[in-house]
C-alpha cells in the first residue's frame, strides 16, 4: 500500500490535544438527566422558533418499532410538545414494520418514494439522507429502531444541548457499557468496532475525536443547517463520516455528546462487525484522501474476504461492500426549492 503517512506531532501538540479534549469533556459532555425539565426545553424551542423532527430509520423492526413510536408520541408529543413530527423512513421492510408504526400515529415513508429521481441505494445512511428532504424540522433526531428499552430521554437528552447552545450543531449519544475484567474493574467504553478500529484510527489522525465515547452509536440529533452541508455514505460509514466532516468543517466544539444510560439491543456476530469495519475503513480512507492526508485510494479493494470451515475445508466468503456516498443535500435543486435554501 502506498500513500499512507502519519502527520508528525510534537509533544506540545499532544498536550494541546489533551487540553482540548479535557475542556470539551467538561463542557460538552452531558447526562440526559440535565435536560429533565421538558417544559423548559419546549420554552427554549418556541423562543428560538425551531421545529424538531424525529426520524426512525427502519428495516424489519416490527418487534421494537411499536414501542418507540408509542413512547415518543405519548411522552414528547401528546404530554409535552417537544417533537413536531415523528417519521419512519423504511428501507422496504417485509414484515409489519410500516403497518405497526402507522397504527400508532407515525408518518411512514418508503425511502425509495422520497426523491425518486435520485434513485435508490440500500443502507441506513440513505434513509437518514432522504429524511433531510422529507422532514420539516430545523433539528432532526435520529434514533435506531432496534432498541428494546426505549425511553423519552433518548430524544430529549440529545435535543437538550442543541436548545441550550446555538454553537452546538451535532449531539451524539453514548451509553453505559460496563466492561468486566478479571480484576473486577469495569470501565466505560464503546463497542468492539469502536475500541478495535475507530478509536485507534481517530487517535492516529484526529485525536480530538477519540473523546467521543461511542462514535458509532446510531442515536444523534443535529441542526438541519449542518446536515444539509455534509455528504452521507449510505452504508456502514455514515456515523464516522458525520463526525469527521463536522469536525473538519466546524471544529470539535460543534460536537457534543450525551450519556443516555442503558441501551438494550441485538448483539451483532463477529462476521457482521467485520463487514461494518470494512465499510467504515473505506469511508475513513475516503476522508483522508478528501482532506489531502493520503494521495489516492484508487487501488483499494472493496471486496471483504472472510472465511469459514466446512468439514475441514476453508471456504472463502466474498462480500462486496462499496460505500456509496450521497452528496450534501444542499446541492440538490429540489431541496433548495422545497426549503428555499441556497448552497
Amino acid at each position: 500500500m502506498t500513500g499512507w503517512w502519519t502527520p508528525r506531532r510534537t509533544r506540545a501538540d499532544a498536550e494541546v490535544v489533551s487540553a482540548n479534549i479535557n475542556r470539551w469533556l467538561s463542557q460538552l459532555t452531558y447526562h440526559h438527566s440535565q435536560f429533565i425539565d421538558l417544559r423548559g426545553l419546549v420554552a427554549a424551542k418556541e423562543r428560538q422558533g425551531l421545529k424538531i423532527s424525529l426520524c426512525l430509520p427502519a428495516l424489519n423492526e416490527e418487534k421494537t418499532i411499536g414501542k418507540e413510536v408509542v413512547m415518543f408520541r405519548s411522552e414528547l408529543m401528546q404530554r409535552i410538545p417537544l417533537l413536531d413530527e415523528i417519521a419512519v423512513i423504511d428501507s422496504g421492510s417485509t414484515d409489519q414494520t410500516r403497518e405497526v408504526a402507522a397504527a400508532f400515529g407515525a408518518d411512514v415513508y418508503l425511502a425509495r418514494d422520497i426523491l425518486p429521481e435520485q434513485g435508490e441505494n440500500k443502507g441506513k445512511g440513505e434513509n437518514l439522507w432522504k429524511a433531510i428532504y422529507q422532514l420539516k424540522g430545523d433539528i432532526i433526531v435520529y434514533i435506531d429502531t432496534d432498541i428494546s428499552n426505549i425511553r423519552p430521554h433518548f430524544v430529549y437528552g440529545l435535543v437538550g444541548p442543541l436548545l441550550q447552545s446555538e454553537e452546538t450543531l451535532y449531539v451524539k449519544a453514548f451509553y453505559d457499557r460496563p466492561l468486566r475484567t478479571s480484576t473486577g474493574v469495569s470501565a466505560t467504553g464503546g463497542g468492539r468496532v469502536t475500541e478495535i478500529l475507530v478509536r485507534p484510527l481517530f487517535s492516529l489522525y484526529f485525536p480530538e475525536l477519540a473523546a467521543l465515547i461511542q462514535p458509532l452509536s446510531g442515536e444523534y440529533a443535529a441542526r438541519r443547517t449542518a446536515l444539509e452541508q455534509i455528504p452521507f455514505p449510505v452504508g456502514y460509514g455514515v456515523e464516522t463520516a458525520h463526525l469527521l466532516d463536522i469536525h473538519q468543517r466546524w471544529g470539535l466544539n460543534a460536537l457534543a455528546q450525551t450519556d443516555l444510560g442503558l441501551r438494550i439491543h441485538r448483539n451483532q456476530p463477529t462476521a457482521a462487525l467485520g463487514r461494518m469495519s470494512f465499510g467504515i475503513l473505506q469511508t475513513f480512507c475516503a476522508r483522508l484522501e478528501k482532506y489531502g492526508w493520503i494521495r489516492s485510494q484508487a487501488e483499494f479493494q472493496n471486496i471483504l474476504r472472510q472465511f469459514q470451515n466446512h468439514d475441514g475445508v476453508y471456504e472463502q466468503i466474498e462480500t462486496l461492500i462499496r460505500e456509496v456516498e450521497r452528496p450534501p443535500m444542499i446541492s440538490l435543486p429540489a431541496y433548495q426549492q422545497k426549503f428555499n435554501r441556497k448552497p
Partner: peptide, 14 residues
C-alpha cells in the same frame, strides 16, 4: 389515550 396508556405500560411493566 391509547399511546399514553401503552407508554405507561412499557415504563411500568419493564
Amino acid at each position: 389515550v391509547r399511546e399514553m396508556f401503552l407508554a405507561n405500560l412499557a415504563l411500568i411493566g419493564e
